[in-house]
């Protein structure tokens, strides 16, 4: 029954075919992106993906507007005020990357009460009236250990680089890693540092803890920190362990260099910044009157040894490996999320 339709100008038609219900026309609807931070390459890629996909949707008349707004200081109060302004400006839906999981609930509740659809993603909110588009971060942890178990059946000593302390994503990934290690007792985590998802911070933290550690066989990470870890190992004149990579271009380039030099094998697992475009289509589908479950799980972006070159080709220098979603992709993801 699956139809492949090229061109977003047919998106509305595709919607009618796939949805099977009457079209509630969204061409007059306006969707806003409320974003809390723009200061790293992931967020820049997210904003570019949003701009690319939504401007096409606007040009095709799927929606009337899809404007992006970013707070200057990554503050909860600032974003709460922004959400209130967006409601007053009459947007029909707000796609939200939130500065806090619960501190924005009041503003989100007000938006819902005013009849505005709120779809949160990446930084999601706990307010029940909002939709949540999330990655299964727990599986991001277990997938790394599964990969290691396959490539290092004899096991080994692991260094864990965590993200930003206090953020739920960091807890979820770390729990996944620890659950994976519990299921594969041949692995042992001998050190843990917080790299804040940042190359420079990860490099410094790893350089600090390395002298106290025995030989490390593999480094499990949360993305964005693999290259920094590799630099710290090189600076300490230690052999380079198997480091799980994220999706930043510099990480992939480093991996490619090692692969060409000595057949270095690893994997990359990460959240693609194009998830924002999926949240956009989810909002459009809700406005269209479709029945969308409140929690939608998005598959993680995983790159294997063989796929490395093709992803490198499509990833610009300084950018991140990315996947953008079409309306059809989104409908597939929604269908999977439905009970």
């Amino acid at each position: 029954m699956k139809r492949t339709l090229q061109g977003a100008s047919l998106a509305v038609l595709a919607l009618a075919l796939a949805g099977g219900t009457a079209i509630a026309d969204t061409s007059g609807k306006r969707i806003a992106l409320s974003n809390n931070y723009a200061g790293n390459s992931w967020r820049q890629a997210m904003l570019r993906s949003w701009d690319k996909v939504t401007s096409q949707a606007v040009a095709d008349g799927v929606v009337a507007a899809a404007d992006a707004f970013t707070t200057a200081e990554n503050q909860v109060t600032e974003q709460a005020a922004m959400i209130q302004n967006l409601v007053l400006q009459g947007y029909d839906a707000i796609v939200l990357n939130a500065a806090s999981a619960d501190a924005l609930n009041g503003a989100v509740r007000e938006a819902c009460d005013a009849g505005v659809v709120v779809v949160s993603f990446d930084g999601t909110v706990t307010e029940p009236c909002a939709w949540r588009v999330t990655y299964d971060y727990h599986s991001m942890g277990t997938a790394q250990i599964d990969f290691l178990a396959e490539h290092m059946p004899q096991g080994g000593k692991l260094l864990e680089i965590r993200g930003l302390a206090g953020v739920i994503v960091d807890d979820d990934i770390s729990r996944g890693i620890h659950d994976g290690v519990a299921a594969n007792p041949q692995f042992e985590i001998v050190g843990t540092v917080h790299g804040d998802w940042d190359q420079a911070v990860a490099q410094r933290a790893v350089a600090g803890i390395l002298p106290s550690l025995p030989a490390i066989d593999a480094v499990v990470t949360q993305g964005g920190d693999g290259y920094g870890a590799a630099q710290a190992f090189a600076a300490a004149e230690r052999p380079t362990p198997l480091i799980i990579m994220g999706n930043r271009q510099d990480e992939l380039v480093w991996w490619k260099e090692q692969k060409d030099k000595n057949g270095y094998t690893t994997m990359s697992i990460s959240s693609a910044p194009g998830v924002g475009t999926l949240a956009f289509w989810v909002a459009q589908q809700i406005l269209d009157g479709q029945d969308v479950p409140k929690d939608i799980i998005v598959p993680l972006l995983s790159i294997s040894q063989d796929e490395l070159e093709s992803f490198l080709e499509t990833t610009e220098p300084g950018g991140v490996a990315n996947v953008e979603y079409t309306l059809e992709d989104t409908q597939g993801v929604i269908a999977k999320a439905a009970p």
Binding site: Q203, D250, G318
Partner: peptide, 12 residues
């Protein structure tokens, strides 16, 4: 030192 500039390199 850290292999290139990034947008949040000065943050901390």
């Amino acid at each position: 030192f850290s292999g290139g500039a990034s947008l949040n390199m000065g943050e901390e």
